[in-house]
């Protein structure tokens, strides 16, 4: 019998064991308490960040809880913050940083943002809203948010790509 420890996306044992019930008489697997010295992001997030680093257009990358684990230089303009200054941010912080408005000028609740919708539904969402730039100018952003489903159909988070409408 194989007993395998499943890991959560931070690389730690999640506290559950899966019995695969396979005949493996040579060297039976046994549960191992976490021997991992450190956690790394999932490979799919690592590769997404490397893509974001290469893109001029703004890109957000979140984990499953909505924590903004990375935003690129293009996105720094939208947030008015630098990633090197803020580091990762929880959804309650980043979703209110840029005070989105509907196209009719009504304040938009964070839960209506396409990226937040994607995190909740694990489906793609697309939409437009207005924000005010750092110099006070109102402009329209269009966003496509895509869920990240990794190997084994694990939901790992989401990415959002932004277009500034001119």
């Amino acid at each position: 019998m194989i007993v395998r420890a499943k890991l959560n996306h931070f690389g730690h044992t999640a506290g559950t064991m899966e019995s695969l019930n396979l005949d493996f008489p040579l060297l039976p697997y046994t549960f191992v308490t976490n021997p991992i010295r450190m956690a790394t992001q999932e490979l799919e997030l690592i590769l997404s960040r490397q893509l974001a680093e290469c893109l001029k257009q703004a890109m957000f990358l979140t984990d499953t809880a909505g924590n903004l684990v990375y935003y690129n230089e293009g996105a720094e303009e939208i947030l008015g913050q630098k990633f090197s200054d803020t580091g990762p941010m929880p959804v309650e912080v980043w979703a209110t940083l840029f005070k989105p408005l509907t196209l009719e000028g009504v304040p938009m609740p964070p839960e209506d943002l396409p990226l937040v919708c994607t995190l909740q539904s694990q489906n793609p969402h697309h939409g437009s809203f207005s924000i005010r730039s750092l110099n006070g100018e109102l402009y329209t952003l269009t966003v496509t948010a895509i869920p990240l489903h990794g190997r084994g159909n694990r939901f790992l988070g989401a990415m959002a790509l932004f277009w500034k409408e001119t």
């Binding site: 046994t30 191992v32 021997p35 991992i36 999932e42 490979l43 590769l47």
Partner: peptide, 18 residues
């Protein structure tokens, strides 16, 4: 895949890499 397990005396950690 991304697993931690033991085979006899060996403790093994595997993860996907680039």
């Amino acid at each position: 895949g991304h697993d931690t397990f033991a085979l006899g005396p060996f403790r093994i950690h595997s993860n996907f890499i680039c």
